[in-house]
Design a protein around this nucleic acid. Structure first.
Length: 946
RNA sequence: GGGACUUUAGCUCAGUUGGGAGAGCAUCGCCCUUACAAGGCGAGGGUCAGUGGUUCGAGCCCACUAAGUCCCACCA
């Protein structure tokens, strides 16, 4: 083996072999265990959040595969409608072309081409992360069978009247010229203005104050062209007499009524609200109550129309309303129009004032463009009937959130769920299976052909398919059953639905998780998964969200391979939404990573993710942790070298014959500790506490195995006094625990464990082609022996006691010391007789003896272990002052302890009320503290008399 | 406006029926001891955000306060 751990030398090699040997294939004789990947966007790349979640999914998958479960990690990707179309359009733009330069078919062809070339990025990244999904079952939401499922679901929901079409106000993204769902709108506070406009009262009416106008306050002046009314609070005494009267809407000279509606808050603004039902969700509702016309003034790019369109609430065009708009505004976009209209009001003397105002601005999550409520025909899913069973599935416990309190978030959204707008005016996606005849009749079915046959439509009747595609999340919602072959009744559906656990982030609980639950229940009657493990969100070391615009993103692959500073700066500063941020980002990056990022390897990265996976909802990613775990891997590497050095070519008791082999107390201890660790690991893993699971593995492998056990093995292997049977026993334990430990560690750190395991395996009785398919260690209670643990605790305490004294008194580790034990009993005598070589070796002793009661006590430095006093005679070794100060520190610590315990025990209420066991324990502690104090005081006296 | 979460060592975080405050990293000291200097051994460091309550006993339970984060929501 190389003297140092080099991840790059082992990782790719093993992954290729695993894949070539088919070890990722689903299967196994045991219970089904299935994880569905949250399908990443096909043209995207994996970020730290993915890498984190993938590590957890892969750890679980490998764990269950080794346990023999019928394991499947279902992988695949999402066609990601808007996101993908955006990428391809941007590429065309770079070539000086537009989407509309092509036919729909040509454009879709280009997207498919792009998917073929870029779609491999993610799977390549997943391979670098060591992910072990069943690649043969890799799915894509636009695959033929998945598309078929989408179509069938749509048709059935339409027949159930759960899908319907209607003209309504939707969130319109003017940049993409498509509707988007509520969830895709992000509402944030932004700075803006509140304009106060005078609306002249009609028919010579005057306000109570004698004005011939009302003042309305608005944040969106441009929409006034579509006003249908002015509303006041019905309780507002100022305007009582005006209700039912009219104003003359300036610029368009339309007469609109003054209405009273509870929506208006008389305390806010002027108490008068302009009502624009076609361009504001609130106004839409107000208008509905008062049967106002909907007057649309925008085209799909949010530019002012030359002529507005008026509708009734059922969507039929309204006649008899003067819809002409001033020619001067026609063709202006909303922001230009805003200026023009404010200016026009000003010129007419109708601009009362302008105030600064903070308002909530809705923006598209992809386009970042301001969303425009727009009146259009769209398809909707009615969610009422779907939501109820989905809520019940969580309430009944059939589906469990981990951590549990995410169910509140889920309930809150589900209890207030709105109908879901599923049509998108895009080209890339599942085309809506609806056709229209010339009269506007709708036919929903699998194909034009099938519709004609079913409805007896003659060839003369022309049918045109709906131009729109479905929301990407519509197909994602079918993922749990569509990937398993639905609507066919497949074995996979029987085995893997419901799946075992969904590992995902809280940001897509509504987008994806809730919709999967609704759709899967509706179409299969089963829940999609039994548990939902909601991971934290990976943030940077300062707790900021990682984002391109902040310039703080880390690419997981860069942590694996390393990256030099120039490349990192280049990566972070190219393709910025706002190029002005580049210098700032460059400066911060150079400051943080002066020498770039080292190559840590996949295993170290994975271990870091697991160690950080606590219940916390934010995870601040600390690069220092990765480095620490790389060092840990190096530790394992060298431990393996030590073991091989001492076992290769030697008798390791592979035939397990008891008479050839004698196990030392250390051997039996580490075997027991190993088994306890297996148990602890399984417990925490089953509870998704990967942080605690990692801690248990780290504690065992580093502290117990490397720091203690390997050291304890040395005296056995090197001493002339140890028998061959003892040496065989220790070699056997060294190599077998190492082998088992690799299997225990494998799910989390797959590469290094395979590499070491392959080298160690020949010396053990274990046989498997790969550690991936070797059995996971099983907990064996019989291996845990309390007596052995106690003896080892004794050994450790003597050693630590001596090391302590060495450290405090700066005695060189290379200088052997003599040790005397005072106040010993028979047990101590037995232990000393049995374990002297361990003590001598690990504490570097010249000698160790029991001190007879009558013997003279030399001036010593003392450590205490229960009743036992560990004395290191210090004549000529140390300066007395240092030792005295050490003793004083110790004494003052104990005095505190004693005082606390004494106070507690002299409190009658404590003694009377606390459980007997607790009181007894406290008493014991007090006695021990007092005894220890006495010994230290005596020790101090002796030193002082030197 | 409604809801969720966070506050423990310099940093990042554990702390599971309320009964001895922990880990990793960082810091300091001693060591190149033949697996590992990417290392070993040892040490220091905390009014558990604040106040009050329940209790014999609170980091943990309850109430309030403060600071911070996030989600949902129709205030022009």
């Amino acid at each position: 083996m190389d003297t140092a751990y080099n991840p790059e030398n082992i990782e790719k090699k093993w992954y290729q072999k695993w894949e070539a040997d088919g070890h990722f294939k689903s299967g196994g004789k045991g219970d089904p265990y299935c994880i569905l990947i949250p399908p990443p966007n096909v043209t995207g790349s994996l970020h730290m959040g993915h890498a984190f979640q993938h590590t957890i999914m892969d750890t679980l998958t490998r764990f269950h595969r080794m346990k023999g479960d019928n394991t499947l990690w279902q992988c695949g990707s999402d066609h990601a409608g808007i996101a993908t179309q955006m990428v391809v359009e941007r590429q065309l733009n770079a070539q000086g072309k537009k989407r509309t330069d092509f036919t729909r078919e040509e454009f879709i062809d280009k997207v498919w081409q792009w998917k073929e070339t870029s779609g491999g990025t993610i799977s390549e990244q997943m391979r670098r992360l060591g992910d072990s999904p069943d690649w043969d079952r890799e799915a894509f939401t636009m695959d033929e069978n998945l598309s078929k499922a989408v179509q069938q679901v749509f048709i059935q929901l339409y027949q159930d009247k759960t899908i319907y079409r209607g003209k309504r106000l939707v969130n319109w993204d003017p940049k993409f010229q498509s509707a988007i769902s509520d969830l895709e709108v992000e509402n944030h506070d932004e700075k803006g203005f509140m304009w106060h406009f005078k609306y002249p009262l009609a028919d010579g009416v005057k306000t109570a104050e004698g004005n011939d106008y009302l003042i309305v306050a608005t944040t969106r002046p441009e929409t006034m062209l579509g006003d249908s009314a002015v509303a006041v609070d019905p309780k507002d005494e100022r305007y009582q007499d005006l209700i039912g009267k009219f104003v003359d809407l300036p610029l368009v000279n339309r007469r609109i009524p003054i209405i009273a509606d509870d929506y208006v808050d008389m305390e806010f603004g002027t108490g008068c609200v302009k009502i624009t039902p076609a361009h504001d969700f609130n106004d839409y509702e107000v208008g509905k109550r008062h049967n106002l016309p909907l007057i649309n003034i925008f085209d799909p790019t949010a530019k002012i129309l030359a002529h507005a369109e008026a509708f009734e609430y059922n969507g039929t065009p309204l006649e008899g309303i003067d819809c002409s708009l001033p020619a001067e505004f026609a063709g202006e976009d909303r922001f230009e129009a805003r200026k023009s209209i404010v200016q026009a009001f000003d010129q007419l003397g109708l601009l009362e004032k302008v105030e600064d105002h903070k308002l909530i601005v809705p923006r598209g999550d992809r386009s970042n463009d301001i969303i425009e409520p727009l009146l259009t025909d769209q398809w909707y899913v009615a969610t009422d009937s779907l939501a109820k069973p989905a809520i019940d599935a969580v309430k009944s416990g059939e589906i469990k959130f981990v951590p549990e309190n995410w169910d509140k978030t889920y309930y809150h959204w589900m209890d207030n769920i709105q109908d879901w707008c599923i049509s998108r005016q895009l080209w890339w996606g599942h085309r809506i299976p609806a056709w229209y005849d010339q009269d506007g009749n709708v036919f929903v079915g699998e194909s034009e052909q099938q519709i004609r046959e079913k409805n007896n439509l003659s060839d003369e009747i022309q049918l045109t398919q709906d131009e729109d595609v479905l929301d990407t999340w519509f197909s994602s919602a079918l993922w749990p059953f569509a990937t398993m072959g639905w609507p066919d009744e497949t074995q996979e559906l029987k085995d893997y639905l419901p799946s075992s656990v969904l590992v995902t982030g809280f940001d897509i609980i509504f987008f994806w998780v809730a919709r999967m639950i609704m759709m899967t229940l509706k179409f299969t009657g089963k829940v999609p998964f039994k548990e939902i493990y909601i991971t934290g969100l990976i943030r940077d070391e300062n707790g900021d969200k990682m984002s391109k615009s902040k310039g703080n993103v880390l690419d997981p692959i860069d942590l694996i391979d390393g990256i030099d500073i120039e490349s990192l700066v280049a990566k972070r500063t190219t393709g910025l939404m706002n190029p002005k941020d580049a210098p700032k980002i460059e400066k911060a990056t150079r400051k943080q990573f002066a020498n770039g990022i080292g190559s840590y390897g996949t295993d170290a990265l994975r271990m870091t993710f697991c160690a950080l996976a606590s219940t916390s909802r934010d995870i601040n990613f600390d690069l220092g942790r990765v480095e620490g775990y790389k060092n840990y891997c190096n530790k394992l590497w060298n431990a393996a070298r030590y073991v091989l050095m001492n076992t290769e070519g030697k008798d390791c008791g592979a035939n397990n014959q008891a008479e050839d082999m004698q196990l030392s107390v250390a051997d039996r201890w580490i075997i027991g500790r190993f088994n306890q660790t297996v148990q602890t690991f399984e417990k925490h893993t089953n509870e998704y506490r990967f942080d605690l699971a990692t801690q248990a593995l780290f504690q065992f492998s580093k502290n117990d195995y490397c720091d203690w056990y390997l050291e304890l093995s040395k005296p056995v292997l090197t001493s002339e006094s140890s028998s061959e049977a003892e040496k065989i026993g220790t070699r056997h334990t060294l190599v077998n625990i190492l082998e088992s430990m690799m299997r225990l560690l494998h799910p989390m750190i797959p590469f290094i464990t395979e590499e070491i395991w392959q080298k160690v395996k020949p010396m053990t009785a274990v046989s498997a082609e790969s550690i991936m398919v070797a059995p996971f260690p099983e907990f064996n209670q019989d291996s845990v022996d309390e007596k052995v643990i106690n003896d080892l605790t004794w050994i450790q305490n003597i050693i630590t006691g001596v090391r302590n004294i060495r450290g405090e008194l700066n005695i060189s580790p290379s200088k052997p010391v003599s040790v005397l034990l005072k106040n010993w009993d028979q047990e101590d005598q037995r232990c000393l007789d049995s374990y002297k070589p361990f003590l001598s070796s690990l504490a570097k002793l010249e000698s160790i003896q029991l001190l007879e009661g009558s013997a003279e006590i030399p001036a010593s430095s003392t450590a205490l272990f229960n009743h036992l006093e560990i004395l290191v005679p210090v004549a000529g070794l140390i300066d007395v002052e240092a030792e005295l100060s050490r003793l004083d520190k110790e004494i003052s610590k104990l005095e505190n302890e004693k005082g606390r315990l004494f106070g507690k025990l002299s409190n009658k209420r404590f003694v009377d009320n606390a459980p007997v066991a607790i009181v007894a324990k406290e008493k014991e502690k007090l006695v021990a503290a007092e005894a220890a104090l006495e010994k230290l005081a005596q020790q101090k006296l002796e030193l002082q008399s030197m």
